[in-house]
Design a binder for these strands. Structure first.
Lengths: 339, 339
DNA sequence: CGCCCGGCTGCAAGCGCTTGCAGGACGGAG
DNA sequence: CTCCGTCCTGCAAGCGCTTGCAGCCGGGCG
């Protein structure tokens, strides 16, 4: 039926051991044997069985990527980067989508499904419960978090506190003092700090400027376009609506822009809006934003697990934490306060 | 180190065969034995080694998903749907991203990397060369194409000819007669018909209305935002610019909208724009479009491969072709011709 | 009361590869 | 000429599961 290493060995007149070594570039094979085996393998269309080699070697050359979504800019972008980085180095990517991200309703994630399936795992901003984290640690394999961090496990992320501060300071510098925040779901488990930190950055920047964060101006946008839209609508019902809005993601900012447009308000004249991400369409929407390097985060995460998988001892991965820089991108959605 | 089936068998006082059968719900195991084994397995934290079971059974319970992108709306959406459908039925998804989709430059895709790794594959609108298709067929496993079709292999898609026609007829019905088309890369291999068919639909609708498709009004937008933007800019340099534009995707339409806005033109008063997809942000942009059911296409594709993997004989999969309906979504970017 | 049959279970042979260890060939040094 | 290394190569024992087949045990039937 299909070509096995046995067939190749026979045809080449060598043992399967030699074929295996030759094809994998291991030492202790003469150059001539190696090239001959390679030629024959190619000619016969031999492809090693992954299952067999996994079983024999104990390594799967696969890393699991756990994500709450695929169809959202940040995640899609990050997954793409991780995939590319890993495939380049001969690793496969096993996608695991955690149905819903909203704390309670989500079915528990059982990291054990990954055991025996992957050599390492990358977790993309999924708010995990304590027991899930424990289970993840018990896997005893390299684990890297993207977009958040957890003690004892590797991570690559941005400084979300700085993000919130940077965005808010930008608005303050434009003369705004009534600055709203559209953030995530306040009920979410707080392991993943991005939403929390961005809010904290907002509050801290306000305080630093002698302003007080108004709870009424802090609304949930659930990191979705519709959520952002609803949040903005809610803000507009206020007796004294804000003159500027810091949305924790560009997608929420898009929603906010839509809500403002529908309310007949002008951006940035009536309300300034700033987001976070530098989403693909942010330029198109002329949205001022805090750019975060998503692709680079994904790539870095891939690199980290690969490094951990490398020469180092299988246990005792030093928990590396990488912080990537962000940057304010000024566009047309923010301007000096006029009202 | 880790729990094997042997350990469970020993602890339960039965053979590994019985454990295997009990845990997989196979017949020929008494109810009491089954539940006892299940209890012990759970208690010991046993997880079957995928490699071992793959090797022994010859099935991988994994399907490969080949896609040119992750970070594009259509693809992200489709992948998410496929993943969900497959995981639900116990299958894993192996992501394979084909670096670039532009015909020539792309490294050849060698379907053989999938051999021994997956039981079936889903290909998302990747324009493959003839030899790649042959290799894919030679894999002798279920293959489903999403967004295009290839003889002899299963497919699920929409009627792209109808899409082009529908969009163009909508513009014609609004009184437009100078209707441009922003499409894909004209140099792409033509196995994947979506871009080609949409263009053909445009031309055919024009002819049916007694109009002639003007080659000067048919420009390449490469299915990207920037491409659409550039295409629109090019159209605006024409001595006699169109009063309406049919973009082959919402993303290109977004680009077109941006270009129009930058040129100081009003949509839909100066130019009407219609896209295809009903992208997540189309509503926000108030873009009229032809909606295609992406999630459903992904789900259906997943279902098809699972069905093909099922009871039927491993060879001789009937090449099923599923065509899903599209629908015109009227929004504010198209209106009666005024000029 | 002997047989047969059906329902459970265990045996053991793989599945296709990896890898520690032993062995063989060859060349240079002593 | 002998003795050692040094290189290559082969042996064979697994890796942890699946599965065809055989075997065992009771109970129903003739």
């Amino acid at each position: 039926m299909h070509v096995t290493i046995e067939d190749v060995a026979q045809r080449a007149g060598v043992s399967t051991a030699t074929v295996s070594r030759a094809l994998r570039g291991l030492p202790h094979v003469s150059a001539s044997t190696r090239s001959e085996v390679a030629r024959i393998a190619l000619e016969m269309g031999y492809v090693a069985s992954k299952s067999a080699s996994n079983l024999a070697s104990g390594r799967t050359r696969t890393v699991g990527v756990v994500t709450p979504h695929i169809a959202k800019w940040f995640f899609a972008q990050a997954i793409e980067a991780v995939e590319q980085e890993l495939r380049q180095r001969g690793y496969d990517v096993l996608l695991v989508v955690l149905p819903s991200t909203s704390g309670e309703g989500r079915p528990v994630f059982d990291p054990d499904v990954l055991r025996q399936r992957v050599d390492a795992v990358a977790v993309l901003t999924v708010p995990l419960t304590g027991s899930e984290l424990d289970a993840l640690r018990r896997l005893r394999m390299p684990v890297v978090f993207v977009g958040g961090s957890v003690s004892g496990l590797m991570s690559v992320r941005i400084d979300d506190l700085a993000v919130g501060r940077l965005a808010t300071e930008h608005l303050i510098s434009l003369g705004h003092s009534s600055i709203a925040h559209i953030g995530g779901d306040p009920d979410e488990p707080h392991n993943f700090s991005a939403p929390v930190d961005r809010r904290a950055g907002w509050a801290s920047a306000l305080r630093a400027a002698g302003l007080v964060p108004d709870p009424a101006l802090d609304v949930a946008g659930f990191f979705s376009v519709e959520g952002g839209q609803a949040a903005m609508e809610k803000l507009l019902t206020l007796a004294d609506p804000p003159t500027a809005v810091f949305a924790g993601s560009d997608e929420m900012a898009f929603g906010a822009l839509a809500a403002l447009r529908q309310a007949g308000l002008e951006v940035p004249d009536d309300v300034s809006v700033i987001g976070v991400d530098d989403h693909e369409l942010a330029g198109l929407m002329d949205l001022t934003t805090i750019r975060q390097p998503v692709t680079e985060q994904g790539r870095t995460a891939g690199g980290l697990v690969l490094a951990a998988l490398g020469p180092s001892s299988p246990t005792g991965h030093r928990a590396e934490h990488v912080l990537l820089p962000v940057e304010l991108v000024r566009r047309g959605s923010t301007a000096a306060r006029v009202r």
